Amino acid sequence: MTAIVAGLNVFPVKSAGGVALAEAELTPTGLRHDREFMLVRPDGRHLSQREIPEMALLQPVFDGVKLTVSSPLAGAPLVCEAADGPALDVTVHKRPCRGVDQGDDAARWFSTALGAPCRLVRFTGTRPTPLGGGTLAFADGYPVSVLSAESLDDLNRRVGEPLPMSRFRPNIVLRGLGPYGEDAATRLRGAAAEIELIRPADRCMIVNTDQETARRSPGTLRALARYRLARFGGARGIMFGRLGVPRATGVLRVGDELAAS
């Protein structure tokens, strides 16, 4: 079975807005610069749209040297060069990791924009995936998330409104597998890259947040729960899409063909 890459998205700051790309480099930790930065509370716990849905309105762009973030919540954009400084002990869903503090100016900008004290950190060190022997930056558990366009089309028919793909924040959007075709796939192979799909993506309340307005409504997660509630291992959750680990790295482009097996 063959799928077409219909979209590529990176999220330079965890739980902030995404950047749609025509091509992206797949690295061992996912698409380059994905979830490379994260906002943390004063005690080091990560901030997300679960607590502050307005994080969706943060629009970051990172070129490998300079991070630029704009938002209707702030005046002038934040522009800062990635800093090498003190590393902080931080956590993602209670799992410990390390992040390099990006300075007081960035902390003030984000704290003012979001109305909550926080600091910006950049990933450092290593962090293993729960399964599959992969490594990742600040993503929740796996470096790559995949969702089929046809799966979203089917959900939209069920809810009766055109939910955009941005609600689900996938790194790679596929077309050609049919609704939920990604559920049965274990490998995606292209000319320059390969991904092993390890487990379903367990969805949370963030899918209820409109990524353009930050407004919440409960309908999306409720609709998914009616037909996508399942078990993986010992956990029960609302599954939509797949999570994976890169096995061969290279450049992915929108329009690429991937063999799914």
Results as ranks from 00 to 15, higher is better:
H33Y: 15
R157F: 01
R127L: 01
P200V: 08
E212S: 13
V19E: 11
A6D: 13
G219F: 13
A113H: 06
E194Y: 07
V121A: 06
V100L: 15
G132D: 02
G7R: 11
A6P: 02
L58Q: 01
R228P: 07
G244M: 08
L47M: 13
V121R: 12
L73V: 04
D101W: 15
A185R: 09
T186D: 07
R175L: 00
A83R: 15
E81A: 12
E25R: 15
A3W: 10
G44K: 12
L120R: 08
F232Q: 13
S48V: 09
L47T: 05
R158M: 04
T126A: 13
S261I: 03
L26S: 00
L21Q: 02
D84M: 09
N156D: 03
A107Q: 01
M38H: 08
A185L: 08
H46M: 14
V92T: 04
R158H: 14
A193M: 02
R119P: 00
G241C: 13
I172F: 07
R231G: 08
A106R: 11
D153K: 11
V251Q: 08
R157P: 00
D153C: 02
A116P: 02
G44P: 01
P246E: 06
V144E: 11
T112H: 12
Y142I: 09
H33I: 00
P143A: 06
L67V: 05
E196C: 04
G99P: 03
R215Q: 14
F37G: 03
R95C: 06
L39A: 00
A260V: 06
L21F: 02
V207Y: 09
P72M: 02
Q211P: 11
P143Y: 08
A106N: 07
P77M: 09
G160C: 03
A76I: 02
E212H: 13
K94P: 00
P170C: 05
G64W: 15
G237Y: 10
T2M: 11
E81T: 13
R203C: 01
G178Q: 12
V5L: 06
F240T: 02
N156H: 09
E54D: 13
D104C: 01
L78C: 05
G85W: 03
Q49K: 14
